[in-house]
Design a protein around this nucleic acid. Structure first.
Length: 592
RNA sequence: CGGGGCGUAGCGUAGUGGCUAGCGCGCCUGCUUUGGGAGCAGGAGACCGGGAGUUCGAAUCUCCCCGCCCCGACCA
């Protein structure tokens, strides 16, 4: 079926929409692929919907290829199951809730672990039925606090979510790996540049978890990568303990700790400056650096039962605590910074001058004191002296203080050592396009999904959960494949193979364009024919490039020389092809 | 939820108390034009986000509300 620009339901815009920021959003709107309906909610127009379905088809094919079976749940779900697993409340404001006419609570599904678990529970009851992986491609709803970047982060979006059900860990590992491989094939077909990073599994109660992140400067996720192949989401990154010599004679090696008056040093920078300026404090070997200072940050930690306790975190002064890493490290406990009222309860803590000697579970205050992995035996610090206006120098870990344990929550810098190879990591941004993780028994446990094993014993099924953002993938592909003129779709997801421009007003031009379009259409190629009359060639050229079909054929002036012009959208390369060879040649270009 | 910006025609915008709200794109009619977003002429299209107030007079000033965008917090 030839798509004719003369009747296609599309209107391209000459200017960027005012509310769009990222390239994919601007271009998808300008090229007439999507239109915004409400914040984070979009409609698909014909061209956009074709791309969407092409992307969806890739996902579906790869899932089926892997042996997973497709099912379909409602998006509108009753409260019950989500109440059982606690997510009705856990999900908080992100859950779209509604009531039916009788006042019963419903929700628009943000993800479907509960429903899948219950469905399997209702059908299967024997180990003979496992393993099983089932999936759906479904519209999901999350009332995001801040939808943004057009289609990349909506409140309504389409996601492929699958769930694996296995008898044991070994089976789960196998199902997990199958999904992992299927995801690699899927994203390769989408022509995406992505990395697989280790991610936090803790928040979902599972063990192993990886994210597929498409590289993009507009990505919301920060991850670290290394040339050795190591990659991890910042929240999942583990900094190795700095190595140290347990035998080193600390007394002989370091000067004794000494407290000094350090007025007017409210910040780390001012403390470092003062230390370098004063001859009595300066180091002999090199100037002091912010990383030589140890800052101690006080938090109040609340556990799942609501019990609060103070926690001190000691880390090098050049780094801040990274909130996401802190949350991951403490989960399920949550932390908040110390406030004035908290300081009032611990008179030994002098705000701004807190030092290790006032901390630790064995200290008078009894405050738990955890330190960064860089704070190890034999490291020497400038830190608070627990007296107003004083800092202590040459305070050596292992000699002058001990911590109660390690906490790895400091921000990561570009160039930090790699945990795997010791090289330098770099920091990059990515957009999450897929996430796979091993749920374990969390849902099966709470919803009672058990099967009989070969001994006749009831065992709780172990599960995995795997998602691909289908509608997001459309935006991510657009992010990755565009230039200043417009979109540049990879062929498999493009809304057509060929955009035929009838350039010129002669009847011959129109007739030839029709003829070729029909021939390619008959050969199974997907054709857009720009048959608009009274529209200048320039407009057609611009639209063809904006819309981003991979092959553009221009039929016009060349007819005099007996040729048509074929342009590669991605490279810009143009070639003339003789009329009598054109049908076959273009078909070949589009299918090899 | 905190900070910043903004709401005027389908889209992009001008308009800081005064006459009939202006322009570009797009749209309609006619003529001309047809290889890189054409020209001329004529048209249609706006409860100026909503409400209340100040004023002889409000798109413009005040208050309240609603909505949108960006940064941050948040994000299975």
């Amino acid at each position: 079926m030839i798509q004719r620009m003369s009747s296609l339901f599309v209107r391209t815009l000459r200017e960027d929409p005012a509310d769009a920021e990222v390239p994919s959003h601007k271009l998808l709107v300008r090229a007439g692929y999507v239109r915004r309906i409400a914040p984070g909610i979009f409609s698909w127009l014909p061209l956009g919907y074709q791309v969407f379905r092409n992307v969806e088809a890739i996902v579906r094919e790869e899932m089926n290829q892997a042996g997973f079976q497709e099912v379909h749940f409602p998006a509108l779900l009753p409260r019950d199951a989500y109440e059982t697993t606690g997510r009705w409340s856990e999900y908080g404001d992100n859950l779209f809730r509604l009531e039916d006419r009788k006042g019963n609570d419903y929700l628009l599904g943000p993800t479907h672990e509960e429903m899948f678990t219950l469905m399997v529970k209702g059908e299967f009851s024997s180990y003979r039925d496992l393993p099983l992986s089932i999936y759906q491609i479904q519209t999901k709803y999350r009332d995001e606090a801040r939808p943004r970047a057009g289609i990349l982060r909506g409140r309504e979006f389409v996601m492929k979510d699958s769930y694996s059900f296995d008898l044991d860990e070994v089976g789960l590992e196998d199902s997990y790996n199958k999904h992992r491989e299927a995801y690699i094939s899927t994203f390769d077909r989408m022509k995406l540049d992505y990395v697989i990073v280790t991610a936090m599994a803790g928040a979902m109660g599972g063990s192993r978890s990886e994210e597929f992140l498409a590289n993009s400067p507009h990505g919301e996720d920060t991850y670290v990568r290394c040339d050795c192949g190591f990659a991890a989401n910042v929240e999942a990154l583990e900094i190795p303990m700095t190595s140290f010599d347990p035998e080193l004679d600390l007394d002989a090696h370091f000067p004794a700790a000494h407290a000094e008056q350090t007025p007017n040093t409210p910040t780390i920078d001012s403390l470092v400056d003062l230390s370098n300026q004063r001859e009595d404090l300066a180091r002999s070997d090199r100037p002091w650096d912010a990383s030589d200072t140890l800052k101690n940050i006080l938090m109040i930690v609340k556990d799942a039962d609501g019990n609060q306790s103070p926690l001190a975190i000691g880390l090098p002064g050049d780094r801040e605590i990274e909130t996401r890493r802190l949350e991951a490290a403490l989960y399920p406990r949550v932390a908040r910074p110390f406030e004035e009222a908290d300081f009032a309860k611990y008179p030994t803590l002098i705000k701004g001058y807190i030092g290790p000697r006032a901390l630790g579970i064995n200290s008078p205050g009894g405050i738990e004191f955890l330190t960064d992995p860089r704070v190890v035996r034999g490291t020497r610090w400038i830190t608070g002296a627990n007296e107003k206006g004083q800092h202590v120098y040459d305070l050596v870990c292992g000699r002058d203080f001990e911590s109660d344990g390690v906490i790895d929550v400091a921000e990561v810098f570009d160039g930090d050592p790699c945990a795997k190879c010791g090289g330098n990591v770099s920091i990059a941004r990515g957009i999450e396009i897929g996430h796979i993780f091993q749920l374990g028994t969390k849902y099966a446990e709470s919803l009672g999904l058990k099967v009989l094993d070969e001994n006749g014993d009831l065992v709780t099924v172990t599960m995995g959960s795997y998602g691909i953002g289908v509608s997001r993938a459309v935006g991510v592909i657009a992010e990755a494949h565009h230039d200043e003129k417009g979109l540049v779709w990879p062929r498999e997801v493009a809304p057509a193979d060929i955009y035929v421009v009838a350039a010129g007003k002669s009847e011959e031009t129109a007739a030839k364009a029709e003829e070729f379009a029909s021939a390619w259409d008959a050969m199974g190629l997907r054709v857009i024919l720009d048959d608009r009359v009274g529209v200048s060639p320039g407009v057609k050229f611009n639209d063809s490039e904006l819309i981003g079909v991979p092959t553009i054929v221009v039929i016009g002036k060349g007819l005099e020389k007996g040729v048509i012009e074929v342009k590669d959208r991605a490279t810009g390369e143009r070639i003339d092809i003789a009329l009598d060879q054109a049908v076959v040649a273009v078909h070949q270009i589009c299918t090899n």
